[in-house]
Amino acid sequence: METIWLYQFRLIVIGDSTVGKSCLIRRFTEGRFAQVSDPTVGVDFFSRLVEIEPGKRIKLQIWDTAGQERFRSITRAYYRNSVGGLLLFDITNRRSFQNVHNWLEEAQSHVQPHSIVFLLVGHKCDLEAQRQVTQQEAEKLAGAYGMRYVETSARDAINVEKAFVDLTRDIFELVRSGDIKIQDGWEGVKSGFVPNTVHSSEEVTKGGRQCFC
């Protein structure tokens, strides 16, 4: 059966190991919280449809990368074909917050000539008592890089939907405005099966792209 979606976006999820990348994605794609999930080695793959407006569905292909530095040689290969990214840190782990800058640099140096729309995610916000990173400083950092900031919890299902949907909407607007174009040989955005002529792909073939890294 043909899945009906307007566009397909590829998102990459990065951040230090054990900040909760896989759990966040599983909560989003499978609607459950796994107390125990295998350490990700390399890259795992997920998918889900989101409806950003009534009748307008976007298919998200989500790449869950291993956080440990040892796996950079493989995870690097996935930046290039991503249009969006969730950059996670753990609000109870200061070191993971301090590494945000490194992750952005890592992404920037491997995404060329394309760019990635990033969302900064402070994860595990259910663990308020153990918080080591304030919302204010995270917002400040996000602002400095032109990113949105959201705090999430996979365990309590806080803002999980919002994080993905907001990012998807942002990308959708950039595609609609022509700032992000569908290109041959680039898998970041693909035009999907359009049931009604809600949008033609013509709308996305004009304009140039900016760097949102």
């Binding site: 794609t29 989101v50 409806e51 049931p195």
Partner: peptide, 21 residues
């Protein structure tokens, strides 16, 4: 199958968040 139309029947109860075909 029902043509991509959303089914709300008990979806909240089962907490299914996948889109429905």
């Amino acid at each position: 199958p029902h043509g991509g139309q959303q089914t709300s029947n008990n979806t909240s109860e089962t907490n299914v968040i996948l889109n429905s075909y």
